[in-house]
Design a protein around this nucleic acid. Structure first.
Lengths: 114, 114
DNA sequence: CAACTATATCCTACTTTGTAGATGATATCA
DNA sequence: TGATATCATCTACAAAGTAGGATATAGTTG
């Protein structure tokens, strides 16, 4: 029985976005990736707060990019997964998959209400 | 973009357990199902509190069983999913799947640390 | 019947996560 | 300098997660 550190729901989205985005990951792109990919809404404030908390846990580190010669091209605070972060994401995702796997919820089609 | 009601991490576990257990679902069995199935730890207190909150949201209803002629066989407070609860579980599970789907996390094997 | 064992639930107090509007920074361009 | 476009931080509160300890109720035993 793992008593351990299970990620919160939104934390999972943020870490998964980092995994997908790689070097392109920073506040705005993380938010975009979550919304486009999953359809789940995510405010920028929520993203930044969560990234900060994940960094405190050692799951994320930051690095700053050079400013770009375009409007609004200020330097960005990029985020990347640490090995511990990747491990935490994997553990949470696996446990969730085991729990949801096989449950008939219309995960493939069936859509609609009720 | 769904601004809507996304379930918390533990709420997903509890609702999934209800879906699996059917008529057998009550505090103790819910806890057992979560722990056995996913490996995620779950205290009884957490389970009851979460069931109560899910009921307030209209995702769960309760019914009481007859006491049984065995030691500790008091009547149990069973829980079942409402249609809204099943729908909420499905929505959260789908969004999560879309976000995690395809991410290389060793969801099938590869195990180990780092 | 009192004491004991086995299950099951409730209560309570607190920690962690989730949320997002308002505010402040910094880049180019007119 | 003023206007526009990104991006980040702050703040304050709401919602979800947690679990120890108290309480309830069944049969059993002496």
């Amino acid at each position: 029985m793992t008593k351990g550190t299970y990620l919160g729901e939104f934390e999972i989205y943020v870490l998964a976005a980092l995994e997908r985005l790689g070097e392109e990951a920073y506040g705005v792109t993380v938010r975009g990736e979550i919304e486009e990919r999953s359809g789940r809404m995510a405010s920028l404030g929520a993203v930044y707060t969560t990234l900060e908390r994940l960094a405190e846990k050692g799951f994320v580190t930051f690095w700053v990019s050079e400013p770009l010669p375009v409007p609004g091209g200020r330097s960005k605070k990029h985020a990347r997964l640490t090995p511990a972060g990747r491990r935490a994401l994997r553990e949470s995702a696996r446990a969730l998959e085991r729990m949801l796997g096989g449950v008939r919820l219309g995960l493939r089609g069936e859509g609609g209400r009720a």
